[in-house]
Design a protein around this nucleic acid. Structure first.
Lengths: 206, 206
DNA sequence: TATTATACTAACCTTATGGTTAAACTAATT
DNA sequence: AATTAGTTTAACCATAAGGTTAGTATAATA
């Protein structure tokens, strides 16, 4: 028998990710996804049975990639200085390469946080070899050792992620406010990373 | 003659804002908006001629409210310490009261930044009595006076807004990562504000 | 070569949805 | 009381879009 073509499935997921990122769940068109994957619309239902399910699959993939990237970086031998120095760079550059992932994630964080939380937590524990709980404990230990000023590990984490993520959401906003059009993306991201690292180190390290 | 009922128009805008915030532009249903405003669907088109136009109107309102709140706070007599101390509180508490505004703004920042930039910049210049350009100059002046460490006013601004906004986007994310369910919102926001102010002051003040 | 299971398509179905229309209602004006 | 103009509704329309179906192509197996 012809072996199930994983190529097709992959093509569908790629096209779906693009379409969902560009238009959100409700705005995305199955027809457009099919066109993007160069197949008949019925194939989407053959492989994924419904729009909902296709979306769920894409979403899991997104979380998987994002937290995979983060998990690869975290380790028990980490120091606070190294974390604050390297995380923003890794994260910002990763998202710059895969802006669709952030779009989909943020859309869901805003519109159905309840749904997302469940999907996320499963992935997080799978993909972060160095699991989150020990990570929070590590931060607490750093604080007890007098290495960092922020005592609440949750807010320590939020501050790091917030500054990194906002590079993307905030770019058009800042452009509107300042009236300046950011043309050199590479330069912008370099400066953004420098600023974030600087604020984090000065702001949270002792 | 009966005078055009501005009450109805206002009710429509309120309902529309709610619906657009909950489901995004494509997901929002005109029928649902009509129900929310307790009127016939045709009235939406009578007052706003199209879904697109209704959305645009809502969007302008959103920007108007958000930047109104910000503009009310900014003034030429501001000091860096005061800005970093008060802005996060004002902004976070405002959004906590009007989460719909943030949802709509972020959705658009992510999905059609080009469109948004234009709409925004008009509003910004109207609503910020103390216009943005002088504000950026003020930051530059602070830097020249040796009051702040961050030299680029754009990134100075981004850091402030990023940490404030992320309180909302990031909450479910952090819940998923930590496995902790944040139940006491008031307490969470209080701690969040304290953490943000602390990081900003330590990180960007000299 | 006949069979069979998978991969795939064209055409179709149904419902939901943005948008329209024609008529009714309301209240100020004459 | 009759007119007039803005406001509101019920019923309708066209089409877009998710989903289905029936059938075809392909290739491995017997």
């Amino acid at each position: 028998m012809k072996t199930n073509n994983p190529e097709t499935k992959e093509r569908i997921l790629q096209a779906a990710q693009k379409e969902f990122a560009a238009r959100g769940f409700a705005g995305a068109r199955m027809e457009a996804i099919a066109r993007g994957a160069a197949i008949n619309k019925a194939m989407l239902f053959y492989y994924f049975s419904s729009k909902d399910n296709l979306y769920r699959t894409v979403l899991l993939g997104v979380f998987s990639e994002i937290f995979g990237e983060i998990g690869r970086f975290l380790s028990p031998t980490l120091t606070p200085g190294l974390l604050l120095e390297k995380f923003p760079e890794i994260y910002i550059r990763f998202i710059a390469r895969h802006p669709d992932l952030l779009r989909i994630m943020v859309f869901d964080l805003i519109h159905n946080p309840e749904n997302v939380t469940a999907a996320m937590s499963g992935i997080i524990h799978d993909k972060m070899a160095f699991a989150p709980q020990p990570f929070l404990e590590l931060i607490t230990k750093w604080h007890r050792q007098g290495l960092i000023s922020e005592g609440d590990p949750l807010h320590f984490m939020m501050n790091i992620v917030a500054l990194s993520i906002f590079s993307f959401i905030g770019k058009p906003m800042v452009e509107a406010i300042s009236g300046i059009q950011i043309k050199d993306d590479a330069d912008f991201f370099r400066k953004r990373i420098a600023s974030v690292v600087n604020v984090l180190k000065r702001g949270m390290l002792k």
